[in-house]
Design a protein around this nucleic acid. Structure first.
Lengths: 212, 212
DNA sequence: TAACGTATTGAACATGCGTTCAGCTTCGGA
DNA sequence: TCCGAAGCTGAACGCATGTTCAATACGTTA
């Protein structure tokens, strides 16, 4: 028996491949046999390790949420004592780009979770909303933003705007010619968000001096 | 044989029910038998009228895109000669709320189209992006907005922000307690967007005088 | 070494799916 | 009035899927 610390057991391989396939195509479109083939095992072994396809999906959900929470924790620690501000200092999608390898299945999996009608997706969104509200509060206390007359909606708006990049990633990459969830794409996306959040649409303070 | 103008043929009923079910649960989760039951016909009739389930889905796609294009045309006509400005004067989701009955399956269907990896979804997004770019150009010409150093990204950003409401509708309704795709929800959402686009996050010019 | 539990396989099974088809009904036009 | 096409049904078919299961290989433990 391979020890649990050595993370290349067949079980771990199955989960990783499932994660990748689920994120890319959605659990409904992916068959147990596809996962088994990708992990180079038999279909029977998949269900032996995870009870059922749904059990495997639940395990992937768990992994995704846990990994994401760890990332959130890292960010909070980076920022010092205060709660981490995802908006607009560091957006969520910026955090994903910076702390994850380029081929990580996590963004895609979180996207799928948010779009599914699973309970886990609802919980994830509520969690993100709480973070967004807390961040807006912090920003307001620091005098860097106004909470506005309706802080609940403002926090939701900021969150939705941020998540839009994650949800529309492929479409945006399509029309812009660059994937916004890469360093290169973020270099074009982030300044525009900063401008918008700083002064709205009316004026642009930063002169376009340096190209690329 | 009932005439084609009388739009309550079994064929039309099937398409309407399919539209509703597809929008709500996605075509993969909906079976031909469910559609047949909802339309009070036999499963055989569904495939008799549309060739196959996929043919029915394609017909729904066609209907949705066509209906949406008509709506876009209406809006352009409303605004006078110039191209319609979906941002920020009238957002897309605002247009949907105003011109569609509350129980219309169109918003949900468009959402599903945008999130599917069908070609129709990509075409729809490209179309929306073109509209967004044209609108930003118009706004810039009218001196009501700056195109910024990177107009392509700015237009994409505005579009993504707008679509976020459509994509996250249920989550937002969940945390805010009000569906943003209703008149009531829009009454809370729209002012916040206006503020953001007018002056950014820094200050709020409009005093919160009147309640409700 | 013997016993045992775990990892693993490949074939088989049950089910739900989209689809087919033969036959019945309905109804407009010759 | 009769015919033929279209609307429509219910049962059946074929297939892919998730799942089960008996059997085998292997490493650990007594």
């Amino acid at each position: 028996m391979r020890s649990a610390s050595e993370d290349r057991t067949a079980r771990a391989t199955i989960r990783d491949e499932a994660l990748r396939l689920f994120a890319a195509h959605g659990p409904d479109k992916v068959t147990v046999r596809q996962i088994a083939t990708a992990a180079e095992v038999s279909p029977g072994l998949v269900v032996h390790h995870f009870g059922s396809k749904d059990g495997l999906r639940a395990e992937c959900d768990r992994w995704a949420v846990e990994t994401f929470e760890n990332l959130l924790g890292e960010l909070t620690r980076e920022e010092g004592g205060a709660t981490w501000a995802p908006e607009p200092t560091g957006s969520l999608h910026e955090a994903l780009v910076r702390h994850l390898p380029a081929d990580s299945p996590l963004p895609g999996y979180l996207r799928r979770l948010l779009l599914s009608d699973e309970e886990a997706g609802r919980l994830l969104f509520r969690r993100l909303y709480e973070v967004s509200r807390a961040a807006l509060d912090d920003l307001a206390r620091a005098g860097r933003a106004e909470p506005g007359p309706d802080p609940a909606v403002r926090a939701a708006l900021l969150l939705a705007n941020d998540l839009a990049v994650l949800l529309l990633r492929e479409h945006l990459a399509d029309v812009l010619g660059v994937d916004p969830l890469t360093r290169e794409g973020m270099a074009r996306w982030a300044p525009e968000v900063l401008d918008l959040y700083a002064v709205g649409l009316g004026a642009t303070p930063r002169a376009p001096e340096e190209g690329a």
